[in-house]
Simulated assay, not measured.
Amino acid sequence: MSSHSEAEVARYSRTARILHWIVAMLVFVTWPMGLMIGFAKDAVKLDFYLVHESLGFLLLWFMLLRTGAKFYQPSPPISGSVLERIAAHTVHGLLYAFLIIMPVSGFLATNAHGFPLRWFGIIPIWSPLDKSPEIAPVLSTIHEWSAWIVLALLALHILAVIFHHLIRRDSTLYRIL
């Protein structure tokens, strides 16, 4: 495997790289925690919800920061065929969209079910929704479907990185490190 110096690689900005890895870490903690809530014993279920919702709310803010930063510091150009570039832009765009839709729908669903968020059990977070049993299931469904879509997109993203790193042996991975 060839080594890639920083001068050779068109890297994402430092801000983009830091936000990328913070979001990745939050997804890798929050997503499985949300899945485990269904299996948690009643004694700890509310604790799982609190941490899951609080981390999800934090994820939302980091995604909003990432989106804003993207306007000020555009991504370096993507190499590859036209089809590969379209696929990469599509997956990235959908990841951004669903990493915002997922926490927003979860936050709103929680409120619509009658459980306003107290961020990490400390700070009450205002919501545009009060208890709304008629829309709570719709929001919960959007949240759940969004989570599965994020998982599928994340799998595509990781497979593409592995393909570029191990098969193509190009500098794609080094752009975000």
Rank of each mutant, 00 (worst) to 15 (best):
Y96E: 12
N111E: 08
L108Y: 04
P103F: 06
S75I: 00
S75F: 10
S81T: 14
Y72S: 05
I100R: 14
G106K: 04
F115N: 15
L59H: 03
Y72G: 11
L99G: 04
R66F: 00
F98N: 13
L99V: 13
L95W: 06
G68F: 02
G80C: 12
A112L: 05
A87E: 02
A88D: 08
I100Y: 12
L55A: 14
N111K: 03
A69D: 10
H113T: 15
F107G: 00
P76I: 00
F115R: 15
Y96K: 06
I101L: 14
I78E: 15
F62W: 10
T67S: 13
H113G: 11
L83M: 08
G114C: 13
S105G: 13
A109M: 07
G80W: 07
H113I: 13
F71R: 11
P74L: 04
L99H: 05
S75K: 06
A112Y: 02
L64Y: 06
M102P: 09
A87K: 02
A97R: 06
F115G: 09
L58Y: 03
L64E: 03
H89A: 05
L59T: 12
G114W: 13
I78V: 12
A97S: 14
H92E: 07
T110C: 10
M102Q: 14
A87F: 05
T67C: 12
F57Q: 01
T67I: 06
H92N: 10
L108D: 07
F57E: 01
S79Y: 08
L95N: 13
S79D: 15
W61R: 00
N111I: 01
N111S: 14
A109I: 06
T110N: 14
L55C: 12
I86A: 08
V91E: 10
Q73E: 09
V82P: 01
L64T: 04
P76R: 10
R85Y: 00
H92G: 06
I78G: 11
L59E: 14
V82N: 07
L58Q: 03
L59A: 13
P77S: 11
L64N: 02
N111L: 03
L83P: 05
S105C: 09
G114P: 15
I100K: 12
P77V: 08
